[in-house]
Amino acid sequence: MLELVIEQRRKDLGGFEVGRVLPFARRRMVGPFVFFDHMGPVDFQPGLPREVDVRPHPHIGLSTITYLFEGEIMHRDSVGSEQPIRPGEVNWMTAGRGITHSERFERARMEGGRMNGIQAWVALPGREEETDPGFIHYGVEDLPVIEDGGAWGRLVAGEAFGVRSRVKTHSPMFYVHWELAEGARVELPADHAERAAYVVSGTVEAEGQSFGEGRMLVFAAGQPAVLTALAPSIVVAVGGEPLGPRFIEWNFVSSSKERIEQAKADWRAGRMKLPDLDSGEFIPLPPDPAARPNPMS
């Protein structure tokens, strides 16, 4: 049963657009997923301005998941990581008590090319919000593949359909990348309390209605959640167990408003380490106390 349909809100980053899906006024989270952006799709030309890069910025209380369908992004962070991410791989960064990182389009700057992917944030459970920061890169071989007729799926993270991804998570969840032939039918895992499916491309049918690119379908708990592709389609399905309310301001996520205020003060005062392998530039704290999280953060 469909509970809600969220349509992406397009945001111009001064060089390309993202589609913001979560957080949404009527649905702040789906399971532990507190932020969900569709990057692109966009065709970059060689010589892309450096202003399009996402300069170093901070996070607390979450893990970021970067997953690409096309393109390449260079990640650098304050725990010493430098890792390009390519289609079908996973960059999983855990902020915990605090991390800083940058995301740069270095290959596109040299060669041009298409960029298309999803960036999501997963809130950490209360006992893990102040864990040590860390970063792990996972290759395609670490992510199980599920095939059924005209449906091909990659389990990006979590557990579903009797298999488990090698990506280390902190709470029960699932994240599936599906590629569906016309007429293919898939059902979201029934053993997770909160579930949603985002249409990256193509058109799907659910409960007698058709939904195209840029829409997230949120399904009611304990009810069947079935999609049928009306055309060749790419769908990302996410969900898991709810963690309780989270505050989100700029790039900070926490169960405590006071902890977010401390993180803001630390960033403003320069107390959060910048990536060693990056330039010394950074994104200042926005002046607006009600600032929304940055796309591509």
Rank of each mutant, 00 (worst) to 15 (best):
197 A>Q: 01
97 R>E: 03
192 H>R: 14
17 E>L: 01
219 F>E: 07
94 T>Q: 07
289 P>M: 05
91 N>Y: 08
194 E>T: 10
6 I>Q: 00
25 A>K: 09
189 P>E: 12
43 D>T: 12
66 T>E: 02
102 S>F: 01
207 E>L: 03
259 R>K: 15
231 A>F: 06
76 R>M: 11
182 E>C: 09
77 D>T: 05
28 R>M: 09
261 E>I: 04
33 F>C: 00
168 K>P: 11
21 V>K: 00
153 G>Q: 03
37 D>M: 12
253 V>A: 07
165 S>E: 05
170 H>Q: 15
274 L>D: 00
126 G>V: 05
153 G>T: 02
292 R>I: 07
64 T>E: 01
110 M>R: 15
140 V>F: 06
284 P>H: 10
2 L>V: 12
278 D>L: 07
38 H>V: 04
291 A>E: 07
28 R>H: 08
246 R>K: 15
161 F>E: 13
280 G>K: 15
53 D>P: 03
281 E>D: 14
77 D>H: 08
291 A>C: 00
285 L>H: 08
94 T>A: 08
259 R>T: 03
172 P>E: 06
234 I>V: 13
237 A>P: 02
68 L>V: 02
253 V>E: 00
119 Q>K: 09
215 R>G: 02
183 G>Q: 11
225 A>I: 02
14 G>F: 08
189 P>W: 06
115 M>C: 11
200 V>I: 07
163 V>D: 10
135 F>G: 00
263 A>T: 00
69 F>Y: 13
245 P>R: 10
109 R>S: 05
126 G>L: 14
297 S>C: 08
212 G>Q: 01
197 A>K: 04
185 R>L: 14
5 V>W: 05
191 D>I: 08
296 M>Y: 13
127 R>A: 09
83 Q>H: 06
163 V>P: 03
189 P>R: 03
229 A>K: 11
222 G>D: 02
43 D>R: 15
259 R>Q: 11
124 L>E: 03
148 D>T: 12
197 A>P: 10
120 A>P: 00
267 W>M: 04
235 V>R: 06
260 I>Q: 06
282 F>I: 02
69 F>R: 04
187 E>I: 02
261 E>Q: 12
159 E>Y: 09
73 I>N: 02
45 Q>I: 14
155 L>R: 08
104 R>A: 11
161 F>N: 14
2 L>R: 04
203 T>W: 08
87 P>K: 02
219 F>P: 14
260 I>S: 02
42 V>I: 13
187 E>H: 07
203 T>M: 10
240 G>F: 01
228 T>R: 14
296 M>L: 15
112 G>R: 08
126 G>A: 14
116 N>R: 12
246 R>F: 14
